[in-house]
Design a protein around this nucleic acid. Structure first.
Length: 187
DNA sequence: GTACAGATTGAG
DNA sequence: TCAATCTGTACT
């Protein structure tokens, strides 16, 4: 059993948090069971300057308000009417920044595949009830220290699924994943 | 009240 | 390569 990540961890610069999240363990308590997985793939979304972010130009709505919360809160969002995206807000209150969790390596009790944002949420039984949940206080989901990751293991790549944001933003390497990990989403 | 986009997935 | 599928948002 490792130590739970504290608020300090999440209020660092988003890109730093994104890289630091690789290798951490995500713990989800479901029906008395402990579902957990190691984070192997993430993407950073940095609000006002990021056209692909819901917080672009400081646009703040009911839908994306969790993205503005102080670091450590869950921003969960439904896309295409069927898939949930699990994000973790970063930095301080009022900053529309977050990190999208794209893939986990299953550790405990997880039977569904987790190599994609939608499948990951399905495997962990995550839904809208987790909107704005505080990872620093929640009793049903949180993050723990995990495997120590060597910086050379971290691969930078362009983000996925946001081509509509334009060639410039969709090419920025704000996606990070662990080298040679087979649970990283393909493509 | 209605229109519409959307950080995906999996089947063909 | 492309369609499925639905909630919140924005607009009338």
């Amino acid at each position: 059993m490792s130590e739970r990540l504290k608020r300090d961890f999440f209020i660092q610069p988003t890109l730093k948090v994104a890289k630091a999240l690789l290798g951490k363990n995500l713990i989800r308590i479901y029906q008395g069971k402990r579902l957990s997985g190691k984070i192997v793939e993430v993407e950073a979304y940095i609000g006002p300057q990021d056209k692909a972010s819901h917080g672009y130009l400081g646009k703040r709505t009911k839908r994306n308000q969790a993205e503005f919360l102080v670091g450590g809160h869950i921003y969960i969002y439904l896309v295409y009417g069927m898939y949930w995206q699990l994000n973790i807000s970063t930095e301080k209150e009022g900053e529309p920044t977050c990190v999208l969790i794209r893939a986990l390596e299953p550790l405990e009790e997880i039977i569904d595949s987790t190599n994609g944002p939608g499948k990951l949420c399905r495997a962990l039984k995550l839904n809208k009830s987790f909107y704005a949940e505080d990872l620093c206080q929640s009793k049903r989901i949180w993050l723990e220290e995990g495997e120590k990751i060597n910086p050379s293991q971290i691969v930078k790549a362009p983000r996925v699924g946001i081509d509509c944001a334009g060639p410039y933003w969709s090419s920025i390497p704000w996606r990070f994943y662990l080298k040679n990990n087979k649970f990283v989403s393909k493509k």
